[in-house]
Design a protein around this nucleic acid. Structure first.
Lengths: 352, 352
DNA sequence: CTGTTAGCGCCTTCAC
DNA sequence: GTGAAGGCGCTAACAG
């Protein structure tokens, strides 16, 4: 076991000397640029291995002397979580500037695939990289693939388009997130239902068409069916992530379902659910689990209206997006473990 | 709302010109070095503000042309979690090398305050920064303060020494971690005890003297007393984080306590608990919550022996330690949000 | 296919 | 207290 990490500075010049070639040739080999004979390349590679050379990132960055332009496409005028992402991107201004990266945040209407597709296509040529909250739609896939073909680095953010050739997805596994919510609901209710009856579980979702919400519902349903068959899932109600609509939906749900024991919200607008429960005097009686940490959900976690939240960290996502795009355009390696976005469980006790 | 982040390259030379001074003077002001009159400094600061200048990190790093030495002090021959930290430090070899940082991992006997103190004192002068799994002990505090006075950057890792003048703590809030474990146990058991009796909760801990374990027990006890008074906590048993000892303790606990409903392990060696329960045919009957994700706890989470784990991410901690030490020695800013180590809740469904 | 050379933006002597 | 000049390690023109 070697306990010393990171050796003393060894420069490309040393490698070139060891391989008996010029600096420029060594550089070409190390960076995989063309114009070097196989034999020479081998000599250089060997020297690199033998000496254990790693280029100094700072010198490479400085010498490259070029700047980058990234675009971040977020859903227009939407929910708090997306605003958090945007804020976290802005909070990285210094980080970007220190790397000569200019970032433009572009707002688009995500629900409209054609609009998103056009806005994306419009980016071609003007940017070196894009992060986009995607829709898994044939048109979107096609545009993403065109951009990638055009040499642009493309990462999807929060909502993936797995069928496209995007280089990376910055976001959580939404099926796992749904399963996690399911286990929390199931375990918190207890395996033996207390009240005698078997209990109904209501589901509030943003829109049946959004991939992330659909995946969460799927994961949630899986766990319920496998592990908690005594609980009955009600038909999901679509509130479009809007608190007001959610409140109306839950009001009706409460009057229609006397044996409602829990509610799971796959998206935003949880505060409407809390309000409806409070009106009915059922806060802390009906178990609630939702997604994402916002001022509203934090408050409802603290006052017990929500028992738990399943969340992703917008700060981590914004930073990961920046690092990944930067690594992609500069040809650096991506540290997979660092960029894996965790499915977090937040209780009142581990609120950050 | 400004949607463009990170402007075009502006160099120190531009700032110097705008302020009507030389490059060297502008540099002195920007880096807070002495030898500049107040009036000149003001002119430069003003130009920096007006133009919105930020130094290019890569150029600064390259020009500084100096290397650093960091030491990482970990408990000797200890548990899996510490090995994970060490592995993650080694996995960053490239990151360190790219910044001219040499890292030495030093193993010490943590339980021995005098030995740790000596080993730490021994570092003076030989390193620019240290990360240490600390003991909150007067001697340790004194040595840390001496090192800091001597110009060394000191961060505590996993276990803090809050009374010292260490610049940063890389680790979780252990009271919050204990509270989180308490809420999980309480909620998973159900507010109304099912079996008629009120139920006993066993506690296995590493050593009463370790600050992190003590804090976890404290947080756990708080939640139990406040929220689940119907549950009775048994006296904590010390198994020194050893699986074999833990197995013995739990065997005895099971025969002494017929109405045992749950076990909380504040430390390592959870596998011994699982073994004892399996022998008694009580796995998945007695609820278990423990700490840290290892191959053993992962397996027991998957087979249902453990219901949940409260964890911290050793990869995040190793990277955070590296970034923080680097920022401290190079005088860069620390991104607090990025370095906050989260108290994670891991269920079978959100296993990474 | 290979080598030479002039910077990238900042920091650090050294001289004034 | 201030300025001039060289160099950090690598890249990208340009020659050869």
């Amino acid at each position: 076991m070697n306990n010393t990490v990171g050796e003393t500075s060894l420069t490309l010049r040393d490698v070139a000397a060891a391989a008996g070639v010029s600096l420029a040739t060594a550089d070409r080999v190390v960076n995989g640029r063309p114009g070097v004979s196989a034999k020479t390349a081998r000599k250089v590679h060997e020297a690199v291995e033998r000496l254990g050379f790693r280029p100094l990132a700072a010198a490479a960055e400085l010498a490259r002397a070029r700047s980058w332009r990234f675009a971040v496409m977020l859903p227009r005028g939407s929910n708090r979580f997306m605003m958090d992402i945007a804020d976290n991107v802005r909070a990285q201004a210094d980080w970007f500037r220190a790397r000569r990266i200019g970032v433009e945040i572009i707002e688009v209407d995500v629900f409209d695939a054609d609009g998103l597709a056009e806005a994306l296509a419009d980016l071609g040529g003007r940017f070196d990289g894009v992060a986009v909250v995607a829709l898994d739609h044939p048109r979107i896939r096609a545009v993403i693939d065109d951009l990638v073909d055009g040499g642009m680095a493309v990462v999807t953010l929060v909502s993936d388009a797995p069928s496209s050739r995007r280089q990376h997805y910055v976001g959580i596994d939404n099926i796992a997130a749904g399963r996690t919510a399911g286990s929390l609901v199931g375990r918190f209710l207890g395996r033996q239902p207390a009240g005698g009856g078997n209990g109904k579980v209501g589901i509030v979702t943003g829109s049946a068409g959004l991939r992330d919400h659909a995946e969460r519902r799927f994961g949630f349903g899986q766990v319920m069916a496998e592990e908690y068959p005594h609980l009955t899932l009600l038909t999901p109600l679509e509130g479009r992530d809007d608190a007001e609509r959610n409140r109306e939906l839950v009001r009706r749900m409460l009057s229609d379902t006397p044996d409602l024991v829990a509610i799971y919200n796959t998206g935003e607008g949880s505060v409407g659910i809390g309000d409806a429960l409070a009106e009915a005097g059922l806060a802390r009686t009906v178990l609630c689990v939702g997604h994402e940490l916002t001022p509203a959900t934090r408050r409802m976690l603290l006052d017990g209206t929500f028992a738990a939240l399943v969340a992703q960290d917008p700060g981590h996502e914004a930073r990961s997006m920046a690092r990944v795009l930067h690594a992609l355009v500069t040809g650096q390696e991506i540290v997979a473990a660092q960029e894996r976005i965790r499915v977090q469980v937040i209780l009142r006790d581990n609120l950050p």
